[in-house]
Nucleic acid binder design. Structure first.
Lengths: 235, 235
DNA sequence: CGCCTCTTTGAGCTCAATCAAGGTGTGTGG
DNA sequence: CCACACACCTTGATTGAGCTCAAAGAGGCG
């Protein structure tokens, strides 16, 4: 298979994942890669399907969703630009996607075939180190969430909003650039929609945040951070 | 640094991690490795310390503990024989342990210096694939736990006990070979000790399990599995 | 034999789940 | 342009699982 076109390479060039790598090398690492544009809610990978490609998120966002036995859904991770999704899976032959991955708002990714991972990524120590870094971040986030297990729901909601905003943060921007519904927040925290709504409505009334066109905008980051730290008991 | 002695190599030889590798190769992968025997509750790695070694669990068990802001503790993972601990950290220079690791019962590990990881492990695709497999397992377990977020506490407790027993399972043995207190179960589930005790005491009364010398022994695995599946609403 | 860890039991309370009903905004097809 | 569906948000009332607080028993070890 030929290496990636300049067009594809260009898309990935600015990612920190490939920082410092020469153009040619990136082309090789993207052998067989395709750009995919997804509309809001469109599904990239479906849980249970054979995992033949992994993806690099370029724009927008994705939710990794797992279904519970009771028919509900749990969001296990939000993937943001620069994140790789399903990469570790590539080193396990015959594996299937353990979660479904769906776009949040219009989003773009590069999908890369397993073969390219096996031939070029796995043998690249520097690249693997960066991927491991991403995984440590992801595990760390799950640990943080676990740490909040006994905290009041308001703190959990604050944590979720802040940690997502931080990942899109350029220059202290406090508006989340992807649509994030209250139901999604609930599903990621193991809470009920109504409870999340009650908390966020209260915040709206207090002028702490506002939502317009599904975009959450934090007006008073200081207040949210206070709640996150547990300084405000009631919420 | 010379490669590991035959004595050290022998200890690791039977691990599935090294399955199929020639003796010599294992010796190289264990360059600078040391066997460490830890007593119950002894700490292997302390959160915040510079991570200069990682470990391979040989016998016993370890809990990975993170402290919350409120002074409580959260157990984020139980490491069992064959597991590697802190391995991914080795590819990040200057990193510190994100959690403390403490022995549960008398336990042994091999500690391996970062240098050996960098020189020999990271470049070994087959080995890295196995390590990735371990991480996918760990993430999968966290996902499973998240899936239970809305389930009654009894189901969570059942899940924790079963999933740990399964990892030590030889031939359907249903006694957990490491000490596991109710407080530890509570800390791993984000529950209170009292609630866990109430549930497990009830099970003892019903003859579903018994505890002797800190070892949990499941007498009626069928019943526990029923609870785990949600068939028994009350617990 | 006193200390420490772990387990136990009870009482009361609270946070958030559930159930129920309704509102708002947007896209789609007749 | 209407109306119908759908996705999302909102609010209220009620309830109960599990938390907290409190007090104490049991076993092991130095």
């Amino acid at each position: 298979m030929p290496i990636a076109s300049d067009e594809i390479t260009q898309l990935a060039y600015k990612l920190s994942l490939f920082e410092g790598l020469p153009w040619e090398r990136i082309g090789v690492l993207l052998t067989g890669a395709e750009q995919k544009m997804l509309r809001h809610k469109e599904v990239l990978f479906r849980a249970g399907e054979r995992a033949e490609t992994f993806a690099i998120v370029l724009e927008g966002g994705f939710k990794l969703v797992k279904a519970t036995t009771g028919g509900e859904k749990v969001i296990v991770f939000f993937a943001t630009p620069g994140n790789v999704v399903a990469a570790l899976l590539m080193s396990i032959p015959e594996s299937v996607y353990p979660v479904s991955v769906a776009a949040m708002g219009a989003s773009t990714v590069l999908t890369v075939p397993r073969e390219t991972y096996v031939s070029h990524w796995a043998s690249d120590q520097g690249l693997m180190s960066r991927i491991h870094g991403q995984f440590l971040f992801r595990i760390g986030e799950m640990h943080d969430q676990k740490t909040l297990a006994k905290a009041p729901l308001a703190r959990k909601v604050a944590w979720q909003i802040v940690s997502l905003i931080e990942r899109y943060d350029y220059d202290g921007e406090t508006e989340l650039p992807i649509p994030l519904t209250r139901a999604e927040i609930a599903d990621s925290l193991g809470a009920s929609v109504e409870s999340v709504i009650r908390i966020m409505s209260e915040w709206s009334r207090e002028g702490i945040l506002e939502t317009s066109e599904k975009r959450i905008h934090v007006l008073r980051m200081d207040k949210i951070l206070e709640i996150l730290k547990g300084a405000v008991p009631g919420g």
